[in-house]
Simulated assay, not measured.
Amino acid sequence: MDLAAIGSFKARLRSLGAGCSGMVAVTRKLSEFDSGGWLVVDDVCDGGVVAELNFHFLESRGNRLHYNITNATPGPYRGAKLGISRNGFLGLYHNASVTGFWKIELLGGSAAKPQIYLRNHEGTRVGFTVRQENISRSTPVLVERSFLSVTESVLRFCLEDIVEL
Rank of each mutant, 00 (worst) to 15 (best):
I84F: 00
L107D: 11
D43V: 02
L30Q: 08
V24E: 00
A111L: 13
L118N: 03
S85I: 02
I116N: 07
T27I: 01
S35A: 11
E105L: 11
Y93H: 15
C20Y: 08
P114V: 08
S110L: 00
G48V: 11
T129G: 02
L90E: 13
G109D: 04
V126T: 09
L118V: 14
H94G: 00
G62I: 03
T129I: 05
Y93I: 00
S21K: 13
G109H: 01
R78S: 09
V50E: 14
V126P: 00
A80Y: 14
A111W: 07
E52F: 03
S97R: 13
K113Q: 14
G37F: 04
E122W: 09
G36L: 04
Y67S: 03
V44T: 13
G100F: 07
T27G: 11
K81P: 01
G37D: 07
R119C: 15
G109E: 03
P114N: 11
M23R: 09
W38Y: 15
G37W: 08
R28Y: 14
V24H: 05
K103S: 09
G83R: 04
L65D: 03
E52L: 13
G88V: 08
Y93R: 08
Y93C: 04
F89M: 08
C45Y: 03
T27R: 11
G109I: 02
A80I: 00
T73G: 04
Y67K: 10
W102Y: 10
M23Y: 14
F128Y: 15
Y67D: 01
G36K: 06
G127W: 10
E122Y: 13
D42H: 02
W38Q: 14
F128E: 05
L90Q: 12
S97E: 10
D46S: 15
V41C: 12
